[in-house]
Design a protein around this nucleic acid. Structure first.
Length: 408
DNA sequence: ATGCATGAGTT
DNA sequence: ACTCATGCATA
């Protein structure tokens, strides 16, 4: 029971909107900022609510464990080598009502959310974010509710990761800021343009990089992309966090914004979360099978781990783009259907005249057709086609009559 | 949307 | 013993 609790404790969420709590995993490759972004929504709400709680006691919303863990976090930071502190299970079975700071703090023992680079051949491999350069002030700042601890990734001058191609890796701007700054979180801008990262993100790369493992879900036969990204002994660790185009996609705020946009566009397409999950298999991306409704839901609600979000994002982008393209096509087809040519209708008097002409000469010459057209005030082509159709009609009638005679 | 469970990989 | 990604079942 206890073991089980430990094993799944990060899933044990209180009724409050506190999302996934991931305890620290201090392996090199697992510098997660899951709590930072997973709790983004909660954070936002918490931030909004906070001012009210400040009447009197600054820590009104915080319990003792928070304070205790704050101290722990600070302590953890004081010793760079000590990235690891094992929280007491009892402290993590449940989280207090104003938990974000608590969790935040817990994860603060983890190195700062350095935006790790991707290794080109394995796009989903989260290479090590270096532990490191977080100082006490940073921690305090993160802990400060006024900032909600959301890491700010100085956005590029442009807004779309589509443009963040390989050359982005040479942006000295990023390299010179190994430690991210913490700013108040941005609210999602509904107007932000959905970008396509498919160009910048090699979605074809297997999701499961580090061990190349794609395990099959026993019951469903789904291909579960294991996105466990952690330090692989022997694999090269970057000594300096290099910033590539993928860092943008991995930016928690970008992820949050994307998830929101994704949801909106999915709904616009009239597709359910389950549909999306199933449709992913049709993408035929290597190592990418279907996903459950749960997972899609969790993606949209940012209740997946950061790495998981980052790995799923390009796949979902791929799906979204294809789905929207298909949708567009359908709409166009529908529009085409509506744009049916106007059917010319020939009035009864003219029709009678035409029938009279037809009785005399079913195959009038071009000149004759022109004459008739002029006489009836119809387009020559209309008259020509009428004769064609009339001949065809007659043929049909003859044929059916003949058949009827024979068969019956 | 989410509690609980599972299997695989990691430490 | 843990972490993680994910799924099933159900609220």
């Amino acid at each position: 029971m206890f073991t089980n609790m430990l094993a799944t404790h990060h899933h044990h969420r209180p009724p409050s909107p506190v999302p996934t709590v991931t305890t620290l995993n201090t392996s090199y490759g697992e510098q997660k900022y899951a709590p930072l972004h997973n709790a983004a929504d909660a954070v936002r709400r918490h931030c909004m609510a906070s001012p009210v709680a400040y009447s009197g006691n600054l820590f009104a919303g915080f319990d003792e464990s928070f304070l205790a863990r704050q101290a722990e976090a600070l302590a953890a930071v004081d010793y760079p080598g000590k990235n690891q502190f094992k929280p007491e299970p009892s402290n993590h079975s449940y989280y207090p009502p104003a938990p974000y700071a608590t969790q935040q703090h817990t994860s603060s023992a983890v190195p700062p959310p350095v935006y790790s680079s991707m290794h080109p051949p394995s796009a989903f491999h989260h290479s090590a974010a270096l532990p490191g350069t977080l100082d006490t002030n940073d921690v305090i700042e993160q802990l400060g509710s006024s900032h909600c601890g959301l890491p700010t990734y100085q956005p590029p001058s442009f807004n779309s990761s589509v443009m963040m191609t390989s050359d982005m890796s040479s942006q000295p701007h990023y390299i010179s800021h190994p430690a991210p700054t913490y700013n108040p979180p941005n609210h999602f801008h509904p107007t932000s343009v959905m970008h396509s990262t498919s160009a910048a993100t090699p979605i074809s790369a297997p999701i499961s990089t580090q061990a190349g493992k794609t395990c099959r879900e026993p019951t469903t036969g789904r291909y579960k992309p294991h996105i466990i990204t952690s330090y692989v002994p022997g694999s090269p660790q970057p000594s300096v966090p290099s910033f590539s185009s993928n860092d943008y996609d991995a930016d928690p705020r970008e992820l949050e914004a994307f998830a929101e946009r994704f949801k909106q566009r999915r709904i616009k397409l009239g597709v359910t979360q389950n549909d999306v999950g199933q449709a992913l298999a049709n993408l035929k991306l290597p190592g990418v099978g279907s996903l459950s409704q749960s997972t899609i839901c969790r993606f949209e609600s940012l209740t997946l781990s950061h790495n998981n979000m980052v790995a799923l994002k390009p796949i979902l982008i791929t799906w979204l783009e294809k789905a929207e393209e298909e949708h567009r096509r359908k709409m166009e087809n529908a529009a085409m259907g509506e744009k049916k040519r106007k059917r010319t209708s020939i009035a009864a008097p003219e029709k009678r005249s035409l029938e009279a002409y037809f009785a005399v000469q079913p195959r009038p010459s071009s000149e004759k057709i022109a004459a008739i057209a002029e006489k009836l005030d119809l387009k020559k082509n209309v008259v020509r086609v009428w004769f064609c159709n009339q001949r065809q009609k007659q043929k049909r009638m003859k044929f059916s009559a003949f058949n009827g005679d024979v068969i019956m």
